[in-house]
Every structure is written in C-alpha cells, then in structure tokens.
C-alpha cells in the first residue's frame, strides 16, 4: 500500500522540509548550551525570512539574501542579548516579547514585497550523483548538515566549546576561572539568531519561495521543542528535526497516495510521534534530562 512512495525521493523531500527547523534548532542549541533560554526563535526566523527575501530580490543574489538574513536576525537577537545579559531581564518573557516584536517588525519591513518572485537559487550538481534525489538539493541543506558536525565538534573538542559549556553549567565557576560569562553568552545568542535567520530565509527563498506575513507559521516553536527533544545534543537535534520533518512529509505523501487513514490523525501525527519517541528515549535513560545546562534561564551578575 505504500508501494507508490519512493523512499529516496521521500528522504530528499524530508531533508528540504526539515532544514529550516534544523538550522534554527542548532542555533538555539548553542544559545541554550551557554545558559541562555531564548524563546524568540519564531521572531528571529521571520525577520530572517523577510531580510533575506528583500535582499535577494533587490540584489538578485540568493547568497547575499542568506547573509542578510543571518545578519538581520542576529541584530534582532542582539536586542535580546542586551536586555537579558546587561539589564538582566527575565529571559522567558523577553524571548516571548522578541517574538511579538519580530513578527511586527517583519511585517512592516515586508510591505510592498507581496506577490514578488525571488531569484531562484542554483542546485548543487555533482556529476554522476545528481540523478539521485538526495544529492541534488539546495546547498543550504548540506550547509545545515555541516553545521551539525561543526557544532558537535566545537562543543565537544575545542576550547571555545568547553568555555561555552562551562558558562552554561555554572556561570559563577566560569566567572571565577576568569572567563567572560557575558561575552560568551552574547556570542552564543548572536549565533542562535543568525542560524534562526538562515532557517527563515530558507523558507522565504527556497521552500515557499515568497514573502507573506507570518509565513514561518510556528516553525520557531517546533525548533525550540526539538532542542529539548535532543536533550541538548547536536546529533539528536538532527534526528529530531528529520523525524518531525519526515513525519510531516510522510503524512502528506500518504494522503496524496490515497491511504485510508483519517486525516485528523495524520495531521496530528508529527507532534504525537515526536512525543512518543521522546518518551521512549527518556524513559530508557533516566539521566537524559540531566544534560540540560544547569544555569539555563538564570541571569548572571558578577557580584565580585
């Protein structure tokens, strides 16, 4: 009954569909590893989406669009960083405020860009391989995979990664050891913003590609959930994003193939399956949650 669904084509689709969430979630992972909880992912994504779109349309270059998206969203995240790190505002509420602000600002910026078709981006062509769907995707798909490897490696094996984790685990100890808690966190927040911006631009320049207000439609929230799903491990962010994206694509394929499963059930399935898989993983290892950065969400003020 699933005979008409080609697995390779399906995998190629799910890789594309998952990329915005994967990019945003990798950024948020780094932010949270430094001990900062930024709930403004949705706002940063949508600002990235509009900044990337405008730049790509005006310059005709999708690559410049992606750069502008990363910069634009990072600027927005800098606002969050100043508020939470300098003025020690509450991270949860500031992040939610950032989402509100980002949605509003993006709509104001995007006025006049409705119904415009952005320049299309070239696909990667590898001689001999490009006939296989999985090897003929947008370059950002592969960049997002490289990002997973890079984040994993930096966090695990490099000195900056170690400092970042130390700051996230115990800001007081890290400070006592002479590391700049504020500086490290600032950088982590900016990185998170830039990644979310790339994810947003991937939506507005590649997947959809179009600018409409509110077009991220909640993907920033899913990215936040995926970081938790991954219990703050880079590889599991990849797993989580592809699982969620995969089920989403699969359920649409099942519908298109005319499989007789109630649509209500199919449309809930990405959320339910993500929960079920997390339950299985977390009950398997009782210490799973212990991987959360110990200082996550706590303000730091050097008292000495």
């Amino acid at each position: 009954m699933f005979g008409s669904i080609d697995p390779l084509v399906l995998i190629a689709s799910l890789m594309v569909a998952s990329t915005p969430i994967l990019l945003a979630a990798m950024g948020e992972l780094v932010t949270e590893k430094s001990g900062v909880l930024n709930l403004g992912v949705e706002g940063m994504m949508i600002v990235g989406a509009v900044a990337g779109f405008i730049t790509a349309v005006e310059t005709g270059s999708p690559a410049l669009g992606f750069i502008a998206a990363a910069v634009g969203a990072a600027i927005l995240s800098a606002l969050f960083a100043v508020l939470t790190l300098v003025f020690l505002s509450n991270q949860v509420a500031t992040g939610l405020g950032l989402t509100l602000f980002g949605l509003g600002v993006s709509s104001l910026m995007g006025q006049g860009y409705n119904g415009v078709r952005p320049p299309s981006s070239p696909r990667v062509t590898i001689p001999g391989l490009s006939d296989i769907p999985v090897f003929a995707l947008h370059p950002m798909v592969y960049i997002s995979l490289l990002l997973v490897v890079a984040v994993w490696w930096v966090l695990r094996s490099t000195r900056p990664g170690l400092i970042l984790r130390a700051v996230g685990e115990s800001h007081d100890s890290a400070h006592a050891l002479g590391y700049s808690v504020r500086g490290t966190r600032f950088a982590a927040v900016l990185f998170g913003g830039a990644c979310a911006g790339l994810g947003g631009a991937f939506l507005s320049l590649v997947i959809v590609p179009q600018w409409t207000e509110g077009m991220t439609a909640g993907r920033g929230w899913i990215a936040l959930a995926i970081v938790v799903f991954a219990s703050w491990r880079a590889w599991r962010v990849l797993l989580g994003a592809y699982l969620f994206g995969g089920v989403t694509v699969l359920q649409l394929n099942l519908q298109a193939a005319g499989v007789a499963i109630p649509v209500e059930l199919l449309s809930m399935s990405p959320y339910l399956i993500t929960i079920v898989v997390l339950v299985i993983i977390s009950s398997d290892r009782r210490r799973a949650a212990a991987n959360a950065p110990a200082s996550l969400g706590r303000s730091f003020h050097a008292s000495s």
Binding site: S4, I5, D6, V9, L10, S13, A17, P20, L203, I207, V208, Q210, T212, G214, M215, A217, G218, R219, T248, V249, L252, N253, Q255, A256, A257
Partner: peptide, 18 residues
C-alpha cells in the same frame, strides 16, 4: 495558512504522479 506546508503538499502530490 502555512505556505511551507502547502509547498510540501504540492511536492507530495507531484511525487505521487500528479
């Protein structure tokens, strides 16, 4: 309203031969 989901739906239909 979810443009990305519409894109995915269109791709799924095309993959199914539409």
């Amino acid at each position: 309203f979810d443009p990305a989901k519409e894109a995915d739906a269109a791709k799924a239909l095309i993959e199914q031969g539409a």
